[in-house]
């Protein structure tokens, strides 16, 4: 039976929004700070484990685990940034990749040790389950929730960067770090805070994503390529680009798997290659 286009679009958008929430921090880190952080997916995974542990062991309500996952992952990323990443800001990309890939292996092994190799069981609250049928489209409540989270994150990012003084400091520091320092802006601290916020968003994404894409210790490796595609196609450091790339990726991935299951897993790569041939710096790349 053919799945209706409306269903594919809706499911694809929900999936794309999730990819956006997880990936946008990586785009910021790579675009603004020039740091290739392949361990970004490990931050998302940590957010997921924080949420499941709080729910399953401490009975914390699901919605309350989300801000906690954000804060916990942001704090963990601060420790890593101060302790490890900072030393490699001026190093080559290969050094950065080797360090962060090593962190991924450690995260996978560590998560297996602490939480076991299997999928984390998770039970969503009743108000986030179920499904409505609207104009022939099956609207899953949880997917609708993901789309709303994505819209809220986008709005917060755009307002935060375009309308606040801290956002102006970020833009100034990216435009011209030397002059930003000449205006008294602590560029390193601005970047640190930005990095923490981006990692926190990955943690939030990991937590809201469990119900859709699952959570096991292989998470950072399994989804690494998706996050990297979002960043590459969207253009480094572009929020708008990340959003559009993530939504395209979500829709094509879901559509490919529904309509042409034999080659479905390859569709996203074909889309990525075509888009990058068209715009090598990504849709909204600076360079």
């Amino acid at each position: 039976m053919m799945v209706s286009l409306g269903n594919v679009l809706f499911n694809g958008l929900a999936y794309g929004m999730l990819l956006f929430v997880i990936s946008v921090g990586l785009s910021v880190t790579m675009g603004l700070m020039g740091f290739a952080n392949l361990a970004h997916g490990a931050f998302a995974m940590l957010g997921g484990y924080v949420a499941t542990t709080l729910m399953n062991k401490a009975g914390v309500p699901f919605l309350l685990t989300l801000p906690i996952a954000f804060v916990a992952v942001a704090a963990a990323s601060f420790v890593l940034e101060r302790g490890l990443y900072r030393r490699l800001y001026r190093a080559g990309e290969l050094d950065q990749v080797l360090l962060t890939i090593g962190l991924v292996f450690m995260a996978v092994a560590g998560a297996t040790y602490v939480w076991g190799p299997g999928q984390q069981p998770v039970r969503m609250p009743d108000y986030l389950t179920g499904q409505w049928t609207v104009a022939g489209i099956d609207v899953g409540v949880y997917r609708l929730f993901l789309i709303l989270v994505g819209i809220a994150v986008t709005a917060a990012l755009v307002l935060g960067i375009e309308r606040t003084r801290f956002g102006a400091m970020i833009r100034a520091a990216v435009d011209n770090p030397r002059m930003a320092q000449g205006c008294g802006i602590n560029v390193n601290r601005v970047f640190s805070l930005t990095f923490m916020a981006g990692s926190g968003l990955a943690g939030l994404g990991g937590a809201v994503g469990i119900n859709l894409i699952g959570l096991d210790p292989g998470f950072p490796i399994k989804f690494m390529v998706y996050f990297l595609i979002v960043v590459a196609v969207g253009g480094l450091g572009s929020i708008k680009g990340s959003l559009i790339a993530a939504l395209l990726l979500g829709v094509f991935d879901v559509g490919g798997k529904y309509y042409v299951p034999e080659v479905g897993a390859f569709i996203i790569y074909a889309v990525m290659v075509s888009l990058l041939l068209w715009r090598p710096a990504g849709l909204f790349g600076r360079r």
Binding site: R165, A168, M169, R171, A172, V174, D175, N176, R178, M179, A180, G182, C183, G184, I185
Partner: peptide, 17 residues
């Protein structure tokens, strides 16, 4: 070294003391 992605007013206020 004007910040190109800041408005004129932001260029002034981002530095304000």
């Amino acid at each position: 070294d004007i910040f190109p992605s800041l408005t004129v007013e932001e260029n002034l206020t981002v530095a304000a003391r």
